[in-house]
């Protein structure tokens, strides 16, 4: 299949609250896809559903030609959780080594990734003493281990400085050039222009999707922020 993620009529209800009423969306392979939407619109819930930790009431999710949560997918998806899921009482290297060993990844790859996220100076530092941005980069590093085909990144650039943010977006595009699919959430609209395809989300529904250029033409706005506002007002 040409899609790396295919979600059909997904309905998620948590504690009696309808989070995703009836979601259908698909993500092509080898692109950088952006999931944009205000806080509480359901971005994290969609990601949790894709990686297979969120129970659904109905609907189907196919990830890399397998049902989500399938065993074969466990080495193929890298997941960056919104609240960095790392061991704060271990050093950066110890964290990376542990995840690398679970994934059967090599020492060389750990060293490469350390440079990729620019944490070489912090390698021996205990994770709890890292700054917010450093913590995020460590979590990103663990998501990159094992050379996953699909990267699910839940707000990976929050709290990072502009230079590092640019570097990371360059990295994301290099990875997609290698054929990997990246699904990245953000509620910073100015990051939208860096995505190949966008999904604008509100209240668990996709308001619109398409290329950044296409969405701008469709709404006649020059700025992503205005695109979103005009789409919401049209409802």
């Amino acid at each position: 299949m040409n899609e790396s993620v295919q979600i059909t009529n997904l309905r998620v209800v948590r504690n009696g609250k309808i989070i995703l009423p009836d979601l259908t969306m698909s993500v092509e392979r080898g692109i950088v896809a952006g999931l944009l939407g205000p806080s509480g619109s359901g971005k994290t819930t969609i990601f949790r559903s894709i990686v297979g930790v969120q129970e659904a009431e109905s609907g189907t999710i196919t990830v890399l030609d397998r049902p989500s949560g399938a065993k074969e997918l466990r080495t193929k998806i890298g997941y960056f959780t919104q609240s960095a899921s790392i061991y704060s009482d271990l050093t950066c290297l110890e964290n990376l080594h542990y995840f690398a060993r679970l994934l059967g990844d090599t020492e060389i790859s750990v060293e490469e990734i350390l440079d990729l996220v620019d944490l070489r100076r912090n390698r021996k530092q205990i994770a709890s003493s890292l700054s917010g941005g450093e913590r995020a980069r460590l979590a990103l590093a663990t998501a990159l281990l094992g050379k996953p085909e699909l990267l699910i990144l839940d707000e990976p650039t929050v709290g990072l400085d502009p230079v590092l943010r640019r570097d990371l977006w360059d990295l994301f595009h290099r990875l997609s050039d290698q054929g990997k699919t990246l699904l990245i959430s953000s509620h910073v609209m100015d990051e939208a222009d860096r995505c190949d395809v966008l999904y604008l989300l509100r209240d668990g529904k996709v308001l619109a999707n398409g290329t950044p250029q296409g969405l701008k033409e469709q709404t006649g706005k020059a700025d992503m922020e205005d695109v979103f506002i005009s789409l919401v007002e049209k409802l």
């Binding site: 297979g52 930790v53 466990r74 998806i77 997941y79 899921s85 679970l102």
Partner: peptide, 13 residues
């Protein structure tokens, strides 16, 4: 609570 367990359970362990 820190999410590491959930993280591990979607890895090959």
């Amino acid at each position: 609570t820190s999410g590491t367990l959930e993280r591990l359970l979607i890895l090959p362990i």
